[in-house]
Amino acid sequence: MATFESKHKYAHLQEDVIKYFLILAATISILTTFGILFSILFEAIEFFKLKSFVYFFSGTEWTPGVENSQFGALPIFAGTFMITAIAMAVALPIGLGSAIYMSEYSTPNARNVLKPLLEILAGIPTVVYGFFAAITVAPFIVKVATTVGIEASFNSALASGVVMGIMIIPYISSLSDDVISAVPDSLRKGSLALGMTKAETIMDIVIPSALPGIISATLLGISKALGETMIVVMAAGLRPNLSWNILEDMTTVTVRIVDALTGDQAFNSPATLSAFALGLALFVVTLILNVVSVRMIQKFKEKYKMSSL
């Protein structure tokens, strides 16, 4: 009997050890989030000790690495916004249209082929998109612009924006397709029975029902566009440029982060530390977008009592 008891004790101890090991592993993901937050925050605080916080968000001069350097990030934020807007102008209609076709019109078999095919676009490394934007799309835009007599930069916001939009299509289409397919069929049938056409059913019944999910997908797409690095590093410009002309070169937050950290400035110089201030802005904005996006999709799930999305 004694042996049985000691064995029992040993087994309990083992259970506890394994359990604590699992908890420890789970904690690492939390440590990572806080690691990112604090490593960026501390360096950003260092930066704001040296340079004005207010001017960073309102100034229009960005001149790192020179005597009496200025760090006004407004043109950088504007460029980021511009390229993101172009990307979403491409990705939203095409992504949503594809999702509607796949979930409402195509046969299940066709959908099983089309969906993974579209998702290839999300699996292509961004450095490859960057190369495509810089070598193929940008010269093409310049050529077209020259033939119609407008001047376009080889680092135009349009080129990187369009290619980024292509990259984001599957992020929008996949999630939208999931939520549109999850809208109960009774809604469609009810609408069709009342004499609405198929398009009216989709536009007035299905899409409004799936709206939280679609907004969630859109926010996720915006967050992807804001944080996208390689496409803009390779195809967009380095020059902070406050302009509405999408054929001009513009720069983004991520481009300036890469530029600041791959230069040979001392680590404690404001030029290098500015990368962390920009990183902090990016972190906060994308975090808010992600949290709102997750809340939206949760709302949708609760509404239709779904467990797997």
């Binding site: 993901s29 939390i30 989030t33």
Partner: peptide, 28 residues
């Protein structure tokens, strides 16, 4: 619940910020 929200967020943080983490913590 906190763990779960955290993992969802981690999946959506721009990849370049992981680079900032690597630079600040692993290297510095």
């Amino acid at each position: 619940e906190f763990l779960e929200i955290n993992i969802n967020n981690l999946a959506a943080i721009p990849s370049i910020l992981f680079g900032l983490l690597g630079l600040a913590i692993y290297i510095n």
